[in-house]
Simulated assay, not measured.
Amino acid sequence: MQYKDYYKTLGVSRTASQEEIKRAYRKLARQYHPDVSKEPNAEARFKAINEAYEVLKDPDKRATYDTLGSGWRAGEEFRPPPGAGAWQDFEFKTGGTSGDYSEFFSSIFGRAFRSEASGTRRQRGQDQTIRLAIDLEDAHQGATRQITLDLPEIGPGGQTTTRSKTFNVRIPAGVTQGGKIRLAGQGEPGRNGGPAGDLYLEIEFNPHRLFVPDGRDIQLRLPVTPWEAALGATVQVPTLDGPVKLKIPPGSQTGRKLRLKGRGLPGTPPGDEIVELEILTPPAETEAARELYRRMAEQLPFDPRAHLDV
């Protein structure tokens, strides 16, 4: 069979870093992908590029390949050393079949590849994701919560069953909606002695009576009186750290947004609290209140619909 120089296939030196190998692979894969390339040999080149990257992207596989020595040239007749196909039991995750790899590849990594094709190699369990609802205060201060989950496990007969497990989960301060907490090795069990996958707890916030989260920012709708909005005022505003004073500029309208820097969820930088004003009018439930509104209508002529031309 012919020796394949995987370094030459990717256009990198034998001393290339893993990052250089990755960049070279991405560039060539885009160039020769059969769905986009107009090169007559695009499919063959694409397979060769993938085979080379499958070996060189992993330090252990690359080291095994490099033990063949640097004296070989691409295209030369190659005879693998005795037992080469039974070398380290590597994992190949490209999803390819034996037809996607060359005879040269199989001669070096034969046992690992054949065991994958037969479905008997050690397989890592899949990662799992479960939603975890927490209070906004937990994300602000950090917390430890005890949770019980029904998780899969492999029974004595090889069948998949479920078992309840209890965890003390540390919720880091500053975690945001959609953020994930990793529980290593608590996912789907591995097969044939393979390691278990990881369990990810995806954070979602319970509805809060005051605040709406937006990333690390939090939003608050603040009711104000017409005179506070018209004349300006300093009012008490709730935050996750307790009430603070907020200055409302004169002439404010409903929908105006004011920012309290650093009053959101912690982080680098921390989030802010966005306060949106909502002007509420007092109810006219007494004759005195109705008379006051009549005087306002007379003394403060104002048409909020003037711009509608109606």
Results as ranks from 00 to 15, higher is better:
Gln2Trp: 15
Tyr32Pro: 11
Phe211Pro: 07
Pro189Glu: 01
Ile248Asn: 08
Asp303Pro: 04
Leu260Arg: 03
Arg259Gly: 08
His33Gly: 13
Glu285Asn: 14
Leu246Ile: 06
Gly215Phe: 11
Asp89Cys: 06
Glu116Arg: 07
Gln141Val: 07
Leu300Ser: 02
Leu240Asp: 09
Ala24Met: 04
Thr67Met: 12
Ser107Gly: 05
Leu68Ile: 11
Leu240Met: 14
Trp87Ala: 11
Arg73Tyr: 08
Gln18Pro: 06
Ser118Gln: 15
Thr15Glu: 12
Ser252Pro: 07
Pro243Ala: 05
Gln141Trp: 03
His140Arg: 12
Ser118Pro: 14
Gly215Tyr: 08
Gly142Met: 05
Leu308Val: 14
Arg170Cys: 13
Val237Ala: 00
Arg256Phe: 15
Arg62Thr: 04
Arg131Thr: 10
Leu151Cys: 02
Phe92Glu: 08
Ala63Val: 08
Leu210Ala: 04
Gly185Trp: 12
Trp72Phe: 04
Thr67Pro: 10
Arg14His: 11
Gln18Cys: 06
Asp303Gln: 02
Ser98Phe: 12
Asp217Trp: 10
Asp89Met: 09
Asp60Pro: 14
Arg182Ile: 05
Thr94Gly: 13
Pro249Ala: 08
Arg163Leu: 00
Ala112Arg: 00
Arg114Cys: 09
Gln141Asn: 05
Ser252Asn: 06
Pro304Lys: 07
Phe211Val: 05
Ala52Phe: 00
Pro304Phe: 05
Ser37Lys: 09
Ser37Arg: 08
Pro301Thr: 01
Gln219Ser: 12
Glu43Arg: 15
Thr15Met: 10
Lys4Cys: 13
